[in-house]
């Protein structure tokens, strides 16, 4: 049995009573409890301003918390994909993917194998010498994912990575992300404001409400169901989407604005 979702197993990351207040006095997060479990695809779904990106940044250690605690089982090991591809424009694709290794003291020669592997995983073999400017939006995002994967992290954190892409590119990247996950068995935490994207990709969805940001509902999606075009058209998908949509509307209604 794999540990996925299993009770009694220590989660990979545990957030308990996490609070985040900014200097301005704005409470971004209040009393957030969240587990990140081995092998799951967890989506944080919510309207803008609900603090879902802040949760991701907290897990990554990119921002401090004003209350509660964050516990990693073992050493933190993560890759981060931003909303923008965030590539160094002055470096070619190889050097961009090499970066995390380079910062850890790995030479260009020793980096060749892992970089090639990461690029193969995102379908960009042969683009090593291209500059970000020469790539399409979808390809840039693939480079960004390859860079996040090159250190083989336990968790891949993704902050609305496909929000800026067109629908067709987005659907393709969704499918590629799923097969990537099937191959690498990486745990993924995925921030999105799209109900459909979250239901299509996830094994679990945490719905968040704004002002102050908190988790208000949790929806499980059967991980054994194959995600393909048929899934997207079937009743199970429609039910989960309705469930998530209802929770999202309740979350937005619960706050004063909507």
């Amino acid at each position: 049995m794999r540990a996925e979702g299993g009770a009694g197993v220590t989660p990979l990351v545990t957030l308990r009573g996490v609070e985040k207040a900014f200097k301005s006095g704005t409470v971004a997060l209040q009393n957030v409890d969240l587990d990140i479990r081995d092998g799951e695809f967890l989506s944080l779904l919510g309207p803008s301003g609900c603090g879902k990106s802040t949760v991701l940044r907290i897990v990554a250690g990119l921002t401090t918390i004003s209350g509660g605690h964050v516990q990693w089982r073992g050493q933190p090991s993560l890759g981060f994909v931003f909303q923008e591809p965030t590539l160094a424009p002055w470096s070619d694709v190889f050097d961009n993917v090499w970066l995390p290794l380079r910062l850890n003291g790995v030479s260009r020669r020793d980096a060749r194998a892992p970089v090639e592997e990461a690029l193969a995983n995102v379908g960009l073999t042969g683009f090593e010498r291209a500059y970000p400017r020469e790539l399409s939006g979808g390809m840039k995002m693939r480079v960004s994912i390859a860079r996040a994967l090159v250190l083989k992290p336990a968790v891949l954190l993704m902050d609305e990575p496909f929000a800026a892409l067109d629908e067709i590119t987005r659907a393709k990247l969704n499918d590629d992300l799923l097969s990537l996950r099937a191959n690498l068995r990486t745990t993924i935490v995925f921030v999105t404001h799209s109900v459909y994207e979250s239901v299509y990709l996830s094994t679990r969805i945490c719905v968040m409400a704004p002002r102050p940001g908190r988790v208000v509902a949790e929806i499980a999606v059967d991980p054994s169901v194959v995600r393909d075009e048929e899934y997207r058209l079937g009743p199970y998908y429609a039910d989960r989407a309705r469930e998530a949509s209802t929770a999202l509307h309740a979350a937005m209604g619960a706050s004063k604005c909507a």
């Binding site: 931003f82 965030t86 970066l99 910062l103």
Partner: peptide, 17 residues
């Protein structure tokens, strides 16, 4: 780029790096 600065921080880059 602020996100790139975050990325460098994430991977524990030294100030020289």
């Amino acid at each position: 780029d602020h996100n790139l600065i975050d990325l460098f921080e994430l991977y524990g880059a030294s100030s020289w790096q």
